[in-house]
Amino acid sequence: MDNVLSVEKLTKTYATGFAALKGVDLSIRRGEIFALLGPNGAGKTTLIGIVCGLVRASGGKVTVDGFDIAQDYRSARKKIGLVPQELATNMFETVWNTTVFSRGLFGKKANPAYVEKVLRDLSLWDKKDDNIRALSGGMKRRVLIAKALAHEPEILFLDEPTAGVDVELRRDMWEMVRKLRESGVTIILTTHYIEEAEDMADRIGVIDKGEIILVEEKHALMRRLGQTRVCVSLTRKLDAIPDGLFDLPLTLSPDGKSLSFTQAGEEAERGKDAGLARLLKNLLARGVDFASVQSSQSSLEDIFIDLVGKSR
């Protein structure tokens, strides 16, 4: 697999003695959308900070497309665009000037047509001559993205890009992320909205207390760790679990009025419907009437809470 970013044994201990990263290994594949999840203080921003040059690593090695971030920092950083978590903007500058500045800072020749395209894609074109301080929070976030894209990066870091952003902008932003991925840009994002990672990412990494506790394809992860729960509410009380269904992990509620079972992701994938169908047929054959049938699949969020909870 072609890795565009590789992190080896990365450690960071701050001057206060706090160990933010404890030997992180991570490889990011070219062209993927990678979601880095973790609770507050897990080390997400420190990790991004080191890769982008904001934080000094205490140990370990990071290469961006083969360039070491310490020795070949110019080549490495040219490939990276960073959208930081905080809305840090040059308040008194215009949108156009600040974007052109970013492009120049990264050593790219002026290209007004490209900058125009970036601003148009982010619906910032009609605001190009506005002072940034006059823009709304959501618009400022777009400006930060425009700045990060101004030098045509191959890797885009989005650190909590949708924190405090309205629904419309979040939708636009994910649309843009998809387009960028189609154009070959690798995207690494951290987010608190786990459903976004579930919706967007190709692979998920979970970091907690400075350690990567899991990296996996999203679909494989959901299959492996996801669960399906089925619950059938009965109109009449049952005394025991009906015969012929002992192979299903059924439980009868204490009041005898509902039957439920939980299947792990992989089993559920293979035979969830079969199990549910057999249960319903069996109940019908016995004349046991039921009021409702509920089936729910665990989300990435459940998996995440479970994972992080276990490591505590």
Partner: peptide
Amino acid sequence: LPRFTGTIYEILSAPV
């Protein structure tokens, strides 16, 4: 000023 507003991040992350 960039240190205060946080925009220094861009200079630190640039190939300069």
